[in-house]
Amino acid sequence: MKLHFRSYLLIAFTLFLLNSCGSKQASEQTATSAIAGEIKIDGSSTVYPITEAVAEEFRTEQPNVKVTVGISGTGGGFKKFGRGEIDINDASRPIKEKEDSVCAANNIKHIQLKVAFDGLVVVVNKENSFIDHFTVEELKKIWEPGAQGKITKWNQIRSSWPNEEFHLYGPGTASGTYDYFTEAIVGKSGSSRSDYTASEDDNVLVQGITGDKNGIGFFGLAYYEENKDKLKLVGVDNGKGSVMPSIETVKNGTYAPLARPVFIYVSDAAVKKSGVSEFIAFYLNNATTLVPEVGYIPLNNEEYQNELAKFKSFTTPQ
Rank of each mutant, 00 (worst) to 15 (best):
K2S: 10
S7D: 12
L9D: 00
L9N: 10
I11T: 14
T14S: 15
T14N: 13
L15H: 00
G22Y: 01
K24E: 12
S27A: 14
S27K: 13
Q29E: 14
T30L: 14
A31Y: 09
A34N: 10
I35R: 08
V47H: 02
V54Y: 07
E57Y: 08
Q62I: 00
G70N: 11
K79S: 07
K79Q: 12
F81S: 04
I86F: 01
D87R: 06
N89G: 01
A91W: 05
K96L: 04
D100N: 14
V102C: 00
I108E: 09
K109T: 15
V121G: 03
V122F: 02
V123N: 03
V124H: 02
N125G: 11
N125E: 09
S129W: 00
S129H: 09
I131D: 07
H133W: 08
T135R: 04
T135M: 06
E138M: 11
K140I: 00
K141E: 13
W143T: 03
A147G: 14
A147Y: 09
Q148T: 12
K150N: 13
T152W: 05
W154P: 09
R158I: 09
W161C: 11
E165N: 15
E165Q: 13
L168W: 01
G170Y: 00
T177V: 01
D179Y: 01
D179P: 02
E183C: 00
G187H: 04
S191D: 15
N203F: 11
V204T: 12
T210C: 00
K213Q: 12
N214H: 14
N214L: 04
Y224F: 15
E225L: 15
E225H: 12
V234N: 09
D237C: 12
G239M: 11
I247T: 07
T249F: 10
G253D: 10
G253M: 08
F263A: 02
F263N: 02
Y265A: 03
Y283C: 04
T288P: 00
Q305P: 04
E307T: 11
E307K: 07
A309S: 15
K310S: 14
K312M: 08
K312S: 12
T316P: 07
